[in-house]
């Protein structure tokens, strides 16, 4: 099974999946500004840590595109770490996150409220 939260839905009650997806949104709310800030300040290590956290959370809920964009950001932070490269990577992460937020909202609407 693939796709957003597919593995979670196979393993867990829907109510638990709902609370996990809500927490995922909270994680993104906290981490995306940190990615943007670190890129703007050209701070490679904070940028890498924030991307690492997003990649982990995205991987856990099956948000493959966001996970890939975040891992690319981690690689950029380790390699070039120029302000421009970080800004480009941050933009890719933000775009992927925006897409996944829509998918999360759509899925949450279909999951029963507890």
């Amino acid at each position: 099974m693939s796709g957003l939260a597919a593995d979670l839905l196979a393993d867990l009650p829907e109510a638990d999946v709902r609370s996990i997806l809500v927490l995922f949104g909270t994680d993104l709310d906290r981490l995306l500004p940190e990615v943007a800030r670190a890129a703007d300040a050209a701070e490679a290590e904070p940028f890498r840590r924030a991307c690492h956290a997003i990649a982990g959370a995205a991987g856990a809920v099956g948000a493959a595109a966001l996970e890939a964009a975040s891992r690319h950001g981690m690689a950029i932070a380790k390699a070039e770490a120029t302000r421009g490269a970080l800004a480009t990577a941050a933009l890719a992460v933000a775009e992927a996150a925006s897409t996944i937020r829509g998918e999360v909202a759509s899925l949450l609407a279909r999951l029963p409220q507890t």
């Binding site: 597919a6 839905l9 196979a10 393993d11 829907e14 909270t26 994680d27 959370a57 998918e103 759509s106």
Partner: peptide, 28 residues
């Protein structure tokens, strides 16, 4: 979005004994 599978409500397994498991993880 992935289709929502049929409600799957797994019941807790019954291990030989209930273990206390510490999860050390910063991502909520």
């Amino acid at each position: 979005p992935a289709p929502v599978p049929a409600p799957n409500a797994p019941t807790p397994s019954a291990p030989a004994s209930r273990a206390r498991v510490l999860i050390v993880e910063d991502s909520a």
